[in-house]
Write a protein that binds this DNA or RNA. Sequence first.
DNA 1: ACTTAAGCGGACGATATCTTCCGTTTAAGC
DNA 2: GCTTAAACGGAAGATATCGTCCGCTTAAGT
Lengths: 216, 216
Amino acid sequence: MIGGVTKAETGEKTRQRGPRRDAADNRDRVLAAAATAVRREGIAVPMATIAADAGVGVGTVYRHFPSREALLSALTHRSFELVLAAATQAAETNADSEEPGAEAVRRFLDRTVEHGGDLVMPLRGGPPALDERTAAVQAAVHAQLRALLQAGVRDGSLRADVTAGDLVIFGALLTEQLPHVADWNTAARRVIDVYVAGLAPTAAPLRAAPVVPSPA
Amino acid sequence: MIGGVTKAETGEKTRQRGPRRDAADNRDRVLAAAATAVRREGIAVPMATIAADAGVGVGTVYRHFPSREALLSALTHRSFELVLAAATQAAETNADSEEPGAEAVRRFLDRTVEHGGDLVMPLRGGPPALDERTAAVQAAVHAQLRALLQAGVRDGSLRADVTAGDLVIFGALLTEQLPHVADWNTAARRVIDVYVAGLAPTAAPLRAAPVVPSPA
DNA sequence: ACTTAAGCGGACGATATCTTCCGTTTAAGC
DNA sequence: GCTTAAACGGAAGATATCGTCCGCTTAAGT
């Protein structure tokens, strides 16, 4: 940020040189290894373990992510991006077809569980706060889910008092895994099915007023 | 176990001397502090922090719980006992009244969330395996919930294809907390309400076969 | 009151992990 | 092919945490 200006005086060509290919690859590998390691050993997993799993030296990890917190933040960001992809795909598919909105919601939740191994949501002990960019992604997720929910209400397959925030919270919980439950995907699918059944418009009203998680 | 026999030769009076009152108190305080600390900072929270929070020295923590793992195990055990109390109370109240089984299930889940701060379920990164005694408590929880579910099926308020294992898994997920959700109890209650609505007998069948978590 | 052993606290040596630093390697532009 | 700066790996010093040990304190039985 300081020395860069002097050198890149070729007009607007600032930051003309992209990252080297090996650097980009390593960054991805570190992120992937970190996701796996964090889910396996918890957020206190040693950086050396992550580095070894990624097949790089610790120095490389620290160059891409200056601190553990930065790495965890990046993990969370990537997780929200994956969730956003799932939400967007569900919303778009739904818009193009005539399937009930409830089915699209179910698919979104299924996807979330399937991606489970790659998701590191900010649950207990996780990275405390969402940075600005991640919050933006989260807001986009909410927007997609809102669209999905509205479509479902319109086609009569969903109740009207459930919010995008409700879905995000439920989805985040599903990314956890009880270690002694062998077939987690099946178990999660059963939870999803009951929840989605509860989204039917005939259901009894909710007791509590909506909670708005964080994106304004 | 080795020196004790020599001394307690007064017939069957082995282990005649119960624990000192201060010792029992301290054990409880350590457990309570540990539960709070673990939920606040994760399972890697330093033992010194737990000791300080409990107002005792580290030596005291290690005397009651010879290792971190033993402490975490004890925490899990206590958590299951609290859940068992909630399940038992729900089952008994239900048996004595004419309320629908669905309401009893909802109360059980509500209780679980309310106890949330004291519960340390074996989620990601938690103590890996349940010891024998804890597994027994877990089995008791399942038994109570089975009774509850059967009553609900009988009185027509619950679907028949949901198992006690499903409820335990769902309840365990609810003990997590998304840190940036301010009013967690409200958020959790909304999730519960949708789930309980999905327990109505009219709902669509589940896709997956039951998963038996661990108690045989 | 006195005795006794259980219980207590926290200093301490051992270990584990963090993060920085720098000599070497390598991708990419000329 | 040569040059250059970005990227790499891993050793090493700084720090944090673990779990033990032992002299002091205190509950509880007589």
